[in-house]
Design a protein around this nucleic acid. Structure first.
Length: 468
DNA sequence: TTTTGAGTTGTTCGA
DNA sequence: GTCGAACAACTCAAA
């Protein structure tokens, strides 16, 4: 019997560029992998859609690990006890993991480390899920960044660690899907056709994006029906691919062909936003519940259950917003610009607390991420770091005319408006009666009347923020 | 310490 | 239809 090393996997469900797995494997002894569903702990549990993804991702990971001779154990409970128990059961002398950055997560990890050490087990943690760790980057005065652009200028010149390879096979294990107790909800059937899950699918998605979509990325990413974004976010969320792999693979393209540098930079700057949000997560207290700008604590949010429900269900009567909310319900994903629009409608026009929207996205999005979901909601709401100015309130009609001019996106997700001519597709309430009749649209019956007046509610939002 | 320039994603209004 | 200004100061980051 040689040494046994345990790898505790969390948001890093991959074999390649996995520093914890790599280090455990290098030790030369037997390697075991463990995933813990930390239900009921201080760790934020994944939402329903993410939970579905997680189930399939763990299954893919279990197969991949078996191919190199590593068994994946799946347990449930408080990490503090489960990790130590498993280490003891299997006689592990060392435990390895990649770091996470939410204050509550760090506390748990620290206590696991302490308990392991008390039991004579060494714990080793690594940076694996960000470009630079939150404490490695700071302003000239040594303070955390609160403005994105200087953060990005600094980050882009930093050394980003080169991805590690996959550990070599140490044998082959038979793999049988474990009975995790997870019951896939009925609605998850509809998500399935839209996604391939797992490390190989992630790698394929990256290749496809860089080959086919990068050239249109800077402009195309704003057009919801063009699908010019990378759609890597759920893979990144669960660590099926690492952000460092994305960084270096994209950067290699620019090195090979300097004309691509500008395109690549645009993509890298979006990855930097992700790190910027992890920077906030680490340095601020509870970004999912506390406004990062304290004055927003006094914001006169409306308590409006019916408005919230209409927004959630995609029946606000504002086509582009409804399209986005339905896309998310159907696919677990929403195009980026539409995320901003739907969030702007909720927090500004409807004056509903951003936390309500954040929670809904958390539950519905397969890519909802502990740093990015809250930080982006705060950005839209105006309470975030480097947030949009308070007077920047999206008009979903104008946005529709600009970014979905032919109404393709709206027609895809709001089929009851299919027959409505382009000039009215983003504002059916303004269409003449005969046009509506001819299109088979009866406002208030086949499609809702708008639940807010965009102009009036815009003014109300401006007044509310001025009152702070 | 003081100064200076800048700050993801927009809309509206009036010329 | 197009264009520039106003929207409101404020704070940050670096020189």
């Amino acid at each position: 019997m040689g040494e046994v090393s345990l790898v505790w996997l969390r948001n890093d469900l991959r074999l390649a560029d996995n520093p914890a797995l790599f280090a455990a494997h290098q030790g030369g002894g037997e390697v075991l992998a463990l995933y813990v569903h930390e239900a009921g702990s201080a760790v934020r549990a994944p939402g329903a859609a993410a939970r579905w993804w997680l189930h399939h991702s763990l299954n893919a990971l279990g197969k991949d690990l078996a191919e190199i001779g590593i068994k994946l154990l799946i347990r449930q409970g408080e990490a503090a006890s489960v990790v130590c128990e498993v280490a003891r059961e299997h006689g592990a002398s060392q435990v390895f993991w990649n770091r996470r950055y939410a204050p509550a997560e760090r506390e748990i990890d620290a206590s696991v480390k302490t308990t392991l050490k008390e039991g004579g087990v060494d714990a080793h943690s690594f940076p694996g899920n960000v470009l630079v760790e939150p404490w490695e980057i700071a302003t000239g005065q040594g303070k955390p960044y609160s403005v994105y652009t200087p953060f990005w200028k600094n980050l882009r010149n930093m050394h980003i660690p080169v991805p590690l390879g996959r550990p070599a096979a140490q044998g082959l294990l038979a793999y049988a899907e474990p009975d995790s107790g997870y019951q896939a909800p009925k609605w998850s059937v509809k998500l399935k056709p839209y996604w391939s899950i797992g490390e190989q699918a992630a790698a394929l998605a990256l290749t496809r994006f860089l080959d086919e979509n990068l050239s249109d990325y800077p402009q195309g990413r704003d057009f919801p029906r063009r699908e010019a974004t990378s759609r890597l976010s759920p893979h990144l969320r669960f660590g099926e691919i690492s952000v460092r792999q994305l960084w270096h693979t994209a950067q290699a393209l620019a090195h090979a062909d300097h004309r691509k540098q500008e395109l690549v930079d645009k993509f890298l700057s979006e990855l930097a936003w992700r790190d910027f949000n992890y920077h906030q997560l680490y340095h601020r207290t509870d970004i999912a519940t506390a406004p990062m700008q304290p004055k927003y604590a006094a914001m006169p949010w409306r308590v409006a259950a019916r408005d919230l429900a209409a927004w959630q269900q995609g029946r606000t009567g504002i086509p582009l917003v409804d399209a986005g909310m339905r896309e998310m319900w159907e696919t677990g994903f929403m195009q980026n610009r539409v995320r901003m629009l739907t969030a702007s409608l909720l927090t500004k026009n409807l004056l509903v607390d951003w936390r309500q929207g954040e929670q809904w996205f958390w539950d519905c999005l397969i890519d909802a991420d502990i740093a990015n979901n809250p930080a982006n909601w705060q950005w839209v709401a105006g309470s975030g770091m480097d947030a949009s100015p308070y007077f920047r309130i999206f008009n979903p009609v104008t946005q529709g005319e600009r970014f979905d001019a032919e109404g393709d996106y709206v027609r895809r997700w709001v089929p009851e408006l299919d027959e409505l001519p382009d000039p009215w597709i983003h504002q059916p309430w303004a269409a003449p009666g005969d046009v509506l009749a001819k299109a088979g649209v009866q406002l208030g019956s086949t499609y809702p009347l708008p639940i807010v007046d965009l102009k009036q509610s815009r003014q109300r939002a401006l007044d509310a923020v001025r009152s702070l």
